[in-house]
C-alpha cells in the first residue's frame, strides 16, 4: 500500500524579496493519526524546506504562540488534527488582521501594547503589608473572574474579529476580557483606572457583538460576553446613580 500523504499549502513571504505573500504546496507523509498541523509544519521544516518560518513552543495548547488560519479558520496549529482535513489539502496562513513579518509569523506588537494598556495587574488604593499574611479569596470570588483569567494570549480572537480587522484602534476581545478579569478580582480596586480605556470609543463601544471571538477562543474565555457585560456595567454606572460603582 502506498504511503498516505497530505498536502499542506502554506503562506510564504520573504520581506526582502517578495512584494506580496504567495502559497507554497508541500506534500508530506501522513503516517500517524494523531498528527496535527504543527507536526506537519515541523516535518516540512526538518525534512523539506528549512526556510519555513512560524512560531510555536508547547505543542499542547498552553503557550498560545502557534495560532494560524487553517482553512480560513482561526486555530491553534498544535490542536488542529490532520485527520479532520484529510484527504483534502490544508491551507495554512498567518493570523488574519495582523501585519505579516515572514511566512506564518505575524507582528504582535499592537496586541502586546493593547494588553498592557488595560493595566493587567492588581491595583490597590493602599497596598496590604506583606506581613499581614495571605489575601484570601473564597471559591465564589474566584469563580467571578476565573473564566476571564484562562486566556493564553493566542490572538485567535483578534484574527477572527472583523471590527479589529476594519479598525486596528479597537482595544479588542482579549484585552477587554483581561480588564474584566482584574475588575472582578476581589483584591483589585482599579476599576476606575481602567474605565477610561474600556469605556472609550475604541474600547467596548467599538464592538458590535459579532461574537466570533468567543467561537474561536480555544480556552472558553468568551471575550464577547466580557465586552457586552462591560457595556452593560458602564451604562448602569451612569443610569443607576449610586449602584454598581465598585
Amino acid at each position: 500500500m502506498a504511503e498516505k500523504t497530505i498536502t499542506i499549502q502554506a503562506t510564504r513571504f520573504d520581506p526582502d524579496k517578495d512584494a506580496r505573500p504567495h502559497l507554497q504546496s508541500y506534500e508530506i507523509p501522513f503516517i500517524d493519526e494523531s498528527m496535527v498541523v504543527l507536526d506537519a509544519l515541523n516535518y516540512i521544516k526538518t525534512h523539506v524546506d528549512g526556510s519555513l518560518s512560524y512560531r510555536w513552543s508547547c505543542r499542547m495548547g498552553i503557550c498560545g504562540s502557534c495560532g494560524m488560519m487553517i482553512n480560513g479558520q482561526s486555530k491553534l496549529s498544535c490542536s488542529a488534527f490532520l485527520r479532520d482535513y484529510w484527504p483534502k489539502p490544508i491551507l495554512v496562513e498567518p493570523l488574519n488582521n495582523f501585519p505579516i513579518i515572514r511566512d506564518l509569523v505575524i507582528d504582535m506588537e499592537d496586541f502586546m501594547h493593547k494588553l498592557k494598556s488595560i493595566k493587567p495587574w492588581i491595583i490597590r488604593k493602599t497596598e496590604i503589608p506583606l506581613g499581614s499574611g495571605e489575601h484570601r479569596q473564597t471559591n465564589a470570588q474566584i469563580d467571578d473572574f476565573r473564566q476571564f483569567s484562562e486566556c493564553i494570549n493566542c490572538m485567535l480572537c483578534y484574527s477572527a474579529c472583523p471590527v479589529y480587522g476594519l479598525n486596528n484602534e479597537f482595544r479588542g476581545p482579549a484585552a477587554i476580557a483581561l480588564a474584566r478579569r482584574y475588575n472582578h478580582d476581589s483584591r483589585d480596586e482599579g476599576t476606575k483606572e481602567r474605565l477610561p480605556v474600556i469605556a472609550d470609543a475604541e474600547g467596548v463601544w467599538e464592538c458590535s457583538f459579532v461574537g466570533e471571538c468567543s467561537v474561536v477562543c480555544p480556552k472558553g474565555v468568551d471575550p464577547a460576553k466580557a465586552i457586552q457585560q462591560s457595556k452593560l456595567d458602564t451604562s448602569l454606572r451612569f443610569v443607576v446613580p449610586f449602584g454598581n460603582r465598585e
Binding site: 469605556a199 470609543a201 463601544w205 457595556k231 452593560l232 458602564t234 451604562s235 454606572r237 451612569f238 443610569v239
Partner: peptide, 11 residues
C-alpha cells in the same frame, strides 16, 4: 454619550 446611545439601543 456612547453609553447613553448604547443604553437606548438596548432598550
Amino acid at each position: 454619550m456612547h453609553m447613553f446611545w448604547w443604553f437606548m439601543f438596548a432598550q
